[in-house]
């Protein structure tokens, strides 16, 4: 399957992409509509709980203390009304960072498509549900649409940092969210595909370089960028700015870039910021000197 086929099917049948996703899921897993719907609703509830938990009290902190509390800071800053990139953007960033703080704290999250990238999609949803006044039903539709796009990238390329770097995780999540955001805003299937290709193309080459092998630095902040990039890519597509390299070709490019990355930059904690003096010092402190 390809993104081109999704766009063609949606146009031919005159149905939204989420409907294609739900139908396919019912067929493949031999489930009823209610079963499939309930499962996605549980995923949505998990995402909502994580964002909520991240801003309770002083926030959540990881066992190492390397990350935590930033969602609370962002929320306060947002409420001051002085943010440079605007409330919509910062609300998304807050949701993204909050989710990944809960993840780093070994809390419960929904992998979207991975745990390391679990903030990107909820971040986008957390902010556009306000902007677009999305109902609960709309939000579940958003997740089904992003899932269908995610299945294409997972099957035709990869979504594991150990195989493709962070571009495969946050890059994929950002592209999935961008495509679903366009649909939620009333864009066409073609515009969803343009948003997808723009978002993934913008993050090509992003390496996976976790300090001490932990899903904290730089993962938490990378999700803020994943969310921001998705919003920008969605807005570009809705403005009619197309991406000349089509989505399926960008997926192939992402896969090839991943295969060309040395193993140090694919989730081994042996390159990138993990290998800076500070990164090494943190590794030695937490894991003990080897």
């Amino acid at each position: 399957m390809s993104i081109k086929e999704i766009v063609e099917a949606a146009n031919e049948k005159q149905v939204p992409i989420y409907e294609l996703a739900i139908k396919q899921e019912m067929e493949v897993t031999k489930s009823t509509f209610d079963e499939v719907w309930a499962k996605m609703e549980k995923n949505l509830e998990t995402m909502e709980s994580a964002v909520k938990r991240s801003v309770e009290g002083d926030g959540v902190f990881s066992p190492t203390g390397l990350t935590g509390g930033d969602a609370v800071r962002i929320k306060k800053y947002l409420e001051s009304g002085k943010s440079l990139s605007g409330d919509v953007m910062m609300r998304g960033v807050q949701g993204a960072i909050g989710t990944n703080e809960v993840n780093a704290a070994m809390g419960v999250i929904c992998a979207t498509p991975t745990a390391g990238a679990s903030g990107t999609i909820p971040g986008v949803l957390y902010t556009i549900k306000e902007t677009l006044q999305l109902s609960r039903e709309d939000q579940i539709h958003f997740l089904f649409t992003s899932a269908l796009f995610g299945m294409i990238v997972a099957n035709n390329a990869c979504i594991a940092g150990a195989l493709g770097g962070c571009q495969a995780e946050v890059g994929s999540a950002s592209a999935m969210a961008a495509a679903a955001a366009v649909e939620a805003a009333g864009g066409t299937p073609e515009q969803s595909a343009h948003a997808f290709s723009t978002a993934l193309q913008n993050l090509l080459g992003l390496v996976c370089d976790p300090v001490a092998g932990l899903v904290e630095i730089p993962c938490v902040k990378r999700n803020a960028v994943g969310t921001a990039n998705a919003l920008v890519a969605a807005d570009l597509a809705l403005a009619g700015v197309n991406n000349l390299i089509d989505a399926d070709e960008v997926i192939d490019a992402m896969y090839r870039v991943g295969r060309q990355m040395p193993r140090e930059l694919r989730e081994t904690g042996l390159g990138g910021v993990a290998e800076t003096p500070t990164g090494i010092a943190i590794r030695n402190k937490i894991l003990g000197k080897e």
Binding site: E25, T29, N43, A115
Partner: peptide, 22 residues
Amino acid sequence: ISYKSCFDVIGPVMIGPSSSHT
């Protein structure tokens, strides 16, 4: 085709921190 279900990419609901390593 390895990822057959929507819930292979939106999901699982899990304890962090890593979907592949946890």
